[in-house]
């Protein structure tokens, strides 16, 4: 446990350097203007984001302001009207398959057992099923999924399904992960547990994560930095990045629950809430 704590600090320090601009960001959205209908309605306008190596960044905004739309473009599922996606400085605009993207639903295939569901990215990449299972099975413990290997998705609780989706996302094997409201389908207690579990795990595994949330508490708890997205595309006002905030990290040994009561946390939360207006 102490080991993990030290790694935490290293990862944050590394991320700071990445965000500082000296290093090339792991992922960058440069000047995104996005639309679902070839520009008839603009959802977001001139949005630029960076994600440093090993960093956890949250994108907060009201429901419908275009957060999912931004992740779709970053993942390459859609091509921006204007703007580019840079992965370690390489242009991958409109090319899926370079980043691990966990969509808003867990999207487990009902006809595959959990182990085969999480192995899917490996099998799709051409790995024989037996090898894929051998690679995935040792990870079940760490992802809190021990004993579920042979179960069907319908036999799992929402939290466990979400864990399976996390493991599948991890097995996509990219160093950049996009999460769309990863905890919003869970009850409050499970959500808190899963959130701290994810933060610790992602830092241990050195994954850079860009997570969407509309929960300000969640953003301040998880993130190293927060982007606040503001606008109302449905009323014809495209969303823009209103602000970028650095989040204070808890000092070593402070539990997430205690950290949530510190002035630094509350101050950051108040700032975000004010920006969201």
């Amino acid at each position: 446990m102490a080991d993990a704590g030290e790694k935490d600090v290293d990862a944050v320090a590394g991320a700071g350097a990445g965000a500082g601009g000296a290093a090339v960001p792991a992922l960058e959205a440069r000047g995104f203007t996005l639309s679902w209908d070839e520009g008839e309605h603009i959802v977001v306008e001139d949005v630029s984001l960076t994600l440093g190596a090993g960093e956890v960044v949250c994108l907060v905004g009201r429901s419908g302001c275009g957060k999912t739309t931004i992740l779709h473009a970053l993942s390459g599922l859609t091509t921006p009207l204007r703007g580019r996606v840079l992965l370690h400085g390489t242009d991958v605009t409109g090319q899926p398959g370079h980043v691990s993207y966990m969509l808003q639903k867990d999207l487990l295939l009902p006809n595959k057992r959990i182990v085969d569901n999480v192995c899917l990215p490996l099998v799709l990449a051409g790995m024989p099923a037996a090898d894929a299972r051998a690679k995935a099975e040792p990870l079940f413990e760490r992802f809190g999924l021990a004993g579920t290997e042979r179960m069907w998705p319908s036999e799992l609780s929402g939290g466990m399904r979400q864990r399976a989706a996390f493991l599948r996302t991890y097995l996509m094997g990219n160093d950049v992960t996009l999460l769309d409201e990863p905890f919003s389908a869970l009850d409050a207690l499970t959500r808190t547990d899963m959130r701290s579990w994810y933060c610790q795990m992602s830092r241990e595994l050195g994954m850079a994560t860009l997570a969407i949330t509309h929960d300000v508490d969640e953003a301040v708890t998880m993130a190293d930095r927060i982007y606040v997205l503001q606008g109302d595309p449905r009323a014809g006002v495209p969303s823009r990045v209103e602000a970028e905030l650095a989040v204070p990290r808890p000092s070593d040994g402070t539990s997430p629950a205690d950290f949530a009561l510190t002035p630094a946390f509350l101050d950051c939360k108040r700032k975000v809430l004010e920006l969201l207006g």
């Binding site: 779709h72 993942s75 390459g76 599922l77 899926p96 398959g97 980043v99 691990s100 993207y101 969509l103 808003q104 639903k105 999207l107 295939l109 899917l120 990215p121 799709l124 990449a125 996509m172």
Partner: peptide, 14 residues
């Protein structure tokens, strides 16, 4: 078919 499932498959280069 849930179109999100197809999107998921596409992100895995299927």
């Amino acid at each position: 078919v849930d179109p999100d499932l197809i999107d998921l498959m596409r992100t895995m280069n299927a």
